[in-house]
């Protein structure tokens, strides 16, 4: 079995999967889209009521949830669109300029 992690732009044709098939789930998780951000959401855990309204609105599945709690952003995949800040009914998310969370 050929794994996606072993495939890159230097891989010879003999080592690529036939027809471009991929045999694993969710290999896109290895791809960093966090570098696309020009604005960055900041999570203020103390203001969060864990209403979860932001979660389904994230186009990049970048808001993890565990044990009923909304966790901090997955900055490797967050593209900084700001929809979460817009839908948050509380002051729990603010957008800052630039690609870095600070």
């Amino acid at each position: 079995m050929i794994y996606a992690k072993d495939i890159n732009e230097r891989t010879p044709w003999q080592d690529l999967t036939p027809g471009g098939e991929i045999y694993e789930p969710g290999t896109a998780r290895d791809f960093d889209t966090g570098t696309w951000r020009t604005n960055t959401p900041i999570f203020h855990v103390e203001a969060c009521k864990h209403c979860m309204l932001c979660v389904p609105f994230c186009p990049d599945s970048a808001i993890p949830v565990k044990d009923g709690k909304r966790l901090d952003f997955d900055y490797m995949h967050c593209k900084g669109c700001g929809i979460c800040e817009d839908v948050c009914p509380f002051p729990a998310i603010t957008m800052v300029t630039g690609g870095v969370a600070k």
Partner: peptide, 29 residues
């Protein structure tokens, strides 16, 4: 909603849809 969003995602991050794209929201939904 709380229960539903706790399920493992089936559309992962790392795709190349534009920032803020409605399609990502609809498909994961």
């Amino acid at each position: 909603l709380k229960r539903e969003v706790e399920k493992p995602v089936r559309l992962t991050g790392g795709h190349r849809l534009c920032a803020g794209c409605g399609a990502g929201v609809v498909v994961s939904g």
